[in-house]
């Protein structure tokens, strides 16, 4: 399992990458592994929507599970990855790159620091599975 050091993570297994004033989010390698083969990704939020930390922005579905997706931090959506609706398997193949889900303008950038870094996230996963 791979947890890049330049990302931040949530307890709900989303990741966040900051690119200037914009943040990018998808789901972690652990999440895609737990879900197994992803068959559907639905982003329910729309570009222009302002969502608070913890608000649902979409859903990811495999043949055996479905998981809601939550905002790691507050922000206003600027872009949605349309490719995932036709090629949901990208979530399994490239969770941190091609399978990014949403981009959004950070509303409260200081929230980012409260999220887990990769070391903390790995420790969190260990605790969850012990």
């Amino acid at each position: 399992m791979d947890y890049p050091e330049d990302l931040r993570y949530t307890t709900n297994d989303e990741w966040l990458r900051v690119e200037g004033e914009i943040a990018v989010t998808g789901v972690s390698d652990y999440a895609q592994d737990q879900l197994s083969d992803v068959v559907y990704v639905e982003i329910t939020a729309e570009v222009g929507d302002t969502l608070s930390q913890g608000d649902a922005f979409g859903m990811v579905e495999s043949v055996k599970a479905a998981a809601d997706l939550y905002m790691p931090v507050s922000g206003t959506l600027t872009e949605i990855n349309e490719a995932l609706s036709d090629t949901p398997e990208l979530v399994n193949r490239e969770p941190y790159t091609a399978a990014w889900m949403i981009k959004y303008r950070l509303a409260e950038p200081e929230q980012v620091d409260q999220l887990m870094d990769s070391t903390a996230y790995i420790a969190h996963l260990k605790g969850k599975n012990s």
Binding site: V63, P88, E89
Partner: peptide
């Protein structure tokens, strides 16, 4: 059995 395990991923995709 007359059929083997089914490919559920293919069905859903």
């Amino acid at each position: 059995t007359p059929f083997g395990r089914m490919d559920e991923v293919k069905a859903a995709r």
